[in-house]
């Protein structure tokens, strides 16, 4: 019971750890290149969750200022907005390169690509 109590109030940080793990595992293990890109995105979202939750204040409103009040920290939101757009740019570029790889090798499977390269 104390083991669980140690993690009370940390549910988002636990989710961050798990998402980073799932994303990393997908990037290492997935044979399909498109799947690796999805893994990269899951990894990113895990980090976003860690940063946004660090600026969260229980019972506070969003950082829209109207007089005195309690607000969450707007800075992580700003950084994550930028990071989401950069992440999409990165994904678009990676997918364009994957289409080129398919043109050259006729497969998206990591091991088949290696076989084709060795066969040349």
């Amino acid at each position: 019971m104390t083991g669980i109590g140690l993690f009370a109030g940390h549910q988002y940080q636990i989710a961050f750890v798990l998402l980073v793990g799932v994303g990393l595992y997908t990037m290492i293990d997935a044979k399909n290149l498109v799947k690796k890109v999805i893994g990269l995105n899951i990894f990113q979202v895990g980090l976003f969750l860690f940063l946004v939750s660090s600026g969260y204040l229980a019972g506070a409103g969003p950082a829209i200022i109207d007089g005195e009040g309690r607000y969450v920290n707007p800075l992580p939101h700003v950084l994550i907005l930028t990071a989401i757009v950069v992440g999409v740019s990165l994904t678009a570029l990676a997918l364009a390169l994957i289409i080129r790889v398919y043109d050259e090798y006729g497969t998206l499977d990591e091991e088949h690509i290696q076989e084709v390269m060795d066969g040349d």
């Binding site: 988002y12 498109v34 890109v37 999805i38 995105n41 979202v45 976003f48 946004v52 939750s53 969260y56 204040l57 506070a60 409103g61 969003p62 950082a63 969450v72 992580p76 939101h77 994550i80 907005l81 989401i84 757009v85 999409v88 994904t91 678009a92 997918l95 994957i98 289409i99």
Partner: peptide, 26 residues
């Protein structure tokens, strides 16, 4: 988490544009 700006961007970009990009690639 009281981050409506991030939620809008994520719904439009993460669930929308990203899925379209991935499906077009496939």
């Amino acid at each position: 988490l009281q981050a409506p700006d991030v939620a809008l961007t994520e719904a439009a970009v993460g669930a929308g544009i990203m899925s379209v990009l991935l499906l077009v690639t496939v």
